[in-house]
Simulated scan of single mutants.
Amino acid sequence: MSEAADNEIMLAVLAAGQSRRFGDQDKLTALLHGRMLGLHAADTLTRIAFDRRTIIASDPGHPCAIGWRAMGYDIILNEHAAEGQSASVRCAAQHAMKYGASALYVCLADMPYIVHQHIQKLSRAFDDHDHQKIIASGEGDKAMPPAIFPSSEFGTLQDLQGDHGARKLLQTAYRVAAPDGSLLDIDTPQILATENQKNPRI
């Protein structure tokens, strides 16, 4: 059963990365504890009833697409995925503006250990700041996704360039500390192999 809805907040799970550090394989199709990596975070996020759920992907026929659609996601094609993560953020912001969303929730598809309790804490912080401030996940001195951007930032998000997404913009965000290890992103086959040797965390 879903939690209370985040009214007019559009969720965008970024899944159009080029997986350059992962070799020839699309890392989102790699198995983590017997399930494709690209399905873990998306599944966790179904526990929050966002007004609209989207996956930003480079291929609508991605092997994870059947699973994503079954979870209630719309798949949005990022035709400029080769330009880096900023292209996915731009695409998400464009659709959030088109949809008339009051805010954009950005998560990464390769973060399999995010927990829904942390997502709820981000939403509460967004409420506490009257929906006017960027809210980011904190890990040490880093600000990173999952993050929430108010509609006042959509124009800035659509001007992003390069492979660092909204990293610079997140430095101005209010940070909510995430549980230890929950923001791990699976960037290399070595990290995946190490995680598969452990007991599942989710």
Rank of each mutant, 00 (worst) to 15 (best):
Q117K: 12
H118E: 04
H118K: 08
Q120W: 05
Q120S: 07
K121A: 12
K121E: 11
L122G: 04
S123L: 15
R124Q: 14
R124D: 11
R124F: 10
A125S: 01
A125I: 02
F126Q: 02
D127C: 06
D127E: 13
H129W: 04
D130S: 05
H131C: 12
H131R: 10
H131P: 07
K133L: 03
K133M: 01
A136R: 04
E139A: 13
D141Y: 09
D141G: 09
K142N: 06
K142G: 06
A143M: 09
A143L: 08
A143H: 12
M144Q: 00
M144S: 03
M144H: 02
P145M: 11
A147S: 01
A147N: 00
I148G: 02
I148W: 01
I148V: 09
F149T: 06
P150M: 12
P150Y: 09
S151D: 13
S152G: 12
E153K: 13
G155W: 09
G155L: 14
G155A: 15
L157Q: 03
D159L: 14
L160W: 01
L160F: 02
Q161R: 15
Q161W: 11
G162I: 10
D163E: 08
H164G: 10
A166Y: 07
R167W: 00
L169W: 07
L170P: 01
L170G: 02
T172Q: 12
T172S: 14
A173Q: 08
A173H: 05
Y174Q: 00
R175W: 03
V176C: 01
V176Y: 03
V176E: 03
A177I: 02
A178M: 11
G181R: 05
L184G: 13
L184H: 12
I186Y: 13
